[in-house]
Structure formats: C-alpha cells, structure tokens
Amino acid sequence: MELNERVKLLRTEHKLTQEQFATAIGITKASVSKFEKGMKAPGRETLEKIADYFNVTTDYLLGRSEEPELTTEEDKIVSEEGKNIMAIIESLPEEERKKAWEQLEMYVNYMKMKKNN
C-alpha cells in the first residue's frame, strides 16, 4: 500500500473529512487532497504530524512497515533514547536544566492537546 492510500485509509477509518483532517494537522484541504491522490508527497514535518495524529509510525505511512505501531524491540529502543535524553538534561547546570524541562513539558502538553482535538 502506498503513502497516499495509507493516509486516506487512516483518515476515513477515523471518520474525518479532508477539511477536518487538514485543520487538525495545520495544513490545507487541498494539500490533503493532493496527498491522497498521490499528486504530492508530504514533507518530513507534515509526515510526522500525520503519524503523530494517527498514532502510527512514519515507517508505516511510508510503507516500510506493515505494523502501524512500534514493536516491543523498537519500543525498548525509544525508551532507552528517553533515558539518554533525561540523563543529558540532568547533567545540565540548574538554570539550563529548568529551561530544558520547561521546553519538554510544553511540547508534551502541546501533543496531548493536539491528540484531544
């Protein structure tokens, strides 16, 4: 299955119009239409927004995997990366550490808000 087919399948499975989906990820309805017709491929940032919105991997969208979610092994890798990021943040001087945690918290809150819409 091609990228355009996967995007359309996910959108229709979630009972979204092209306009609703476009608004949800911050692009135009025309762009969604072009993606679904295979006339245009989404850029990296938009591809990530699509994956985040539908809670699937970019590899799934690109047809590199038939599994929409991370495997157990992939999840372990992601968890290790999270631990590494936390260690880096904790090694920063106090003021920089506070700023890093604030930025991370803002990002997480943004993603939660986006998923709830």
Rank of each mutant, 00 (worst) to 15 (best):
A100V: 03
I89E: 06
V108M: 11
S33Q: 10
I89G: 02
E48F: 03
H14S: 13
V7E: 10
V108K: 14
E81N: 05
G63D: 03
A22F: 03
T28I: 04
D75W: 09
A51I: 11
N109S: 07
S91Q: 05
L3Y: 10
K8W: 00
H14K: 15
K34P: 00
K115N: 10
P93M: 03
N117E: 05
L9S: 11
I77C: 02
E80W: 04
T57G: 11
I50K: 07
K76D: 13
R11Q: 04
N55F: 08
L70Y: 15
T72S: 08
V108G: 00
G38Y: 09
M111K: 15
A22G: 12
K76A: 14
E36Y: 08
M113K: 07
E94P: 01
K114V: 01
E66V: 10
T71V: 08
T57L: 06
E19P: 02
K8G: 01
K115Q: 14
L10D: 06
K15C: 08
L92D: 07
P68H: 04
V32G: 11
E105G: 03
K37T: 15
M106C: 01
I27Y: 07
Y107L: 09
N55T: 10
Q20A: 15
Y53F: 15
I88S: 09
F54P: 07
S91Y: 05
L92E: 10
D59C: 01
K29D: 10
T58D: 01
F21Q: 12
Y60T: 09
K76P: 00
M113H: 10
T58K: 09
N116C: 04
M113D: 06
E19T: 11
Q20V: 02
E74Y: 02
K114S: 03
M111W: 00
E13V: 06
E19S: 10
R97T: 01
K34I: 00
D59N: 11
E80M: 02
K99E: 14
E80N: 12
S31A: 14
L47W: 07
W101Y: 15
E105D: 14
F21T: 06
K29F: 05
V7C: 05
E95D: 13
N55M: 06
F21S: 13
T12S: 12
E67Q: 14
E66A: 08
K40W: 06
Q103I: 08
I85A: 11
R64S: 06
E80H: 12
E69Y: 08
L16T: 02
L92T: 04
G43H: 08
E67T: 07
D59F: 07
F54I: 10
I77V: 13
E95M: 12
I50M: 05
S31H: 04
D52A: 10
E2N: 15
M111T: 12
P93F: 12
S31Y: 09
K112V: 09
K114G: 02
W101P: 00
D52L: 12
I77F: 13
A41F: 01
K114P: 00
I50P: 08
E66Q: 15
T28G: 04
E95T: 14
F54Q: 09
K83D: 09
E19N: 13
N55Q: 15
A22W: 06
